[in-house]
Design a protein around this nucleic acid. Sequence first.
RNA 1: GGCGGCAUAGCCAAGCGGGAAGGCAGAGGACUGCAAAUCCUUCAUCCUCGGUUCAAAUCCGAGUGCCGCCUCCA
Length: 475
Amino acid sequence: MSLQLYNTLSGKKEEFIPLRGKQVGMYVCGPTVYNYFHIGNARPFLVFEVLRRYLKYKNYDVTYVSNFTDIDDKVINKAKEMGCTYSEVADRFIKEYFQDADYLNIGRADFYPRATEHIADIIGLIQRLEEKGFTYVVEGDVFYDISNFKEYGKLSKQNLDEIKIGARIELDERKKNPYDFVLWKKAKEGEPKWDSPWGAGRPGWHVECSAMSAKFLGESFDIHAGGEDLIFPHHENEIAQSEAASGKIFAKYWMHNGYLKIDNRKMSKSLGNILTIRELSQKYDGSVMRHFLLSAHYRSPLNYSLEQMEQSKNSMETLNNTVYNFNFILKKNLGNSATDRKSKKLSDTVDEMVEEFNAAMDDDFNTPKALSTLYLLAREANIYLNEVPDKNKEVVKKVLQFYKDFGTTILGLKYLSELDEQEQISKEDIEQLIEKRERARKNKDWQVADQIRDKLNSLGVIIEDTAEGARWKKH
RNA sequence: GGCGGCAUAGCCAAGCGGGAAGGCAGAGGACUGCAAAUCCUUCAUCCUCGGUUCAAAUCCGAGUGCCGCCUCCA
């Protein structure tokens, strides 16, 4: 079974063959840190980190790099607004980034390079481009001359002659070609600046990714990913810089996720229709948001709505219940080692689901299809729970292991199966009340039994009577 | 003007030439002292019109609708 990934560069699904055996280098464009990030920004962060989890599961040794753009106009403006330095803004929102990323259970990258910490590398890269004749300087600004890079447009499939007609390009008289872009920006009065051979200034946006990816992953690496709005010009420019400087292929696979939309429009800071993770975390569990973001294929557009979030919430609930109900068997220390046909069948179903899960993920990382295996198993597993009085302990464990390995380790979903948070009532008190209720039920004293159930309910504890005794959970 | 994406049930979403997955919601039923959880049943002329094929949601052509990139944007 081999992994197929859609490569924006070729416009096709391709077999994934890393450049260096089992070593995989992955670079995902990270945020400009001047604000909280929103659920649209979250999509690539989350989705490509799931790809990394899956690659790890497939025994690849992944080096995952995600940058922080900590110097640019937006950061500088924010600093003015907040009355502090640009680096205070960056530090602050990097901290906020991690809080939200953790909430979404986005795994940590191996490296989080910051542009301002790699000024020397950036200058070095620009110098190489200068030596090779890809730059020109106007009034202290260093530009990249795209006319010298013959393959310009190969990622976005833009034809230079035709994009010139583009309606919205802002003409900068100093540029030789409208699509030339700034590598080094001369400092304006009062702006943060670094010394360079071209005078004091700061790096342009695209150049940091070229410099930092080379530093951490080498001049050629495997996967470069981000939102599809980065294809042009950001990633196109990165290719132009990196390949012109090194003479080598930059990234082998380019992956881009579709937009997160709201009211059927792209969610973006410039449109002002954003919902931050911080806001949403007030309302929804991180796993519910993950479920939502993984419920569509990463390349498809995904529309945010309240109804969608409710659906994801309910869907997670089904998974939570199944996992919880299986854990209950172990907690009660029930189950034997007998082998019967139904246990065997459930065990086989788990094996089938493992295969289906892998097949789905191998096919361009199809998370919605992969998710469906969790539900298919849930049905079989719940039937087993209802129909088989003597559960086979190993099978019960195997089911739980499936949910852990694929649901949690790969997809990053956490099940609300255990009591957490601060308790209004202790575990012991709950167990005591349940025992009391069990006695009442034996005596058919329904009134007392229901009173206890109502009381627990008001404390957020739900009672479920089963053949194995009363089960309880927090809601 | 150039480049690209999407269109499958009430909602979401797989599917890539031969049985229309899965989830959510709804309806009915089973189980239960009543519940909860769970299970069962039920719910699709695959945007339109042509074409190719023994066979098309799937391929080709022409439309229609929606979204996006070409300016900062994930």
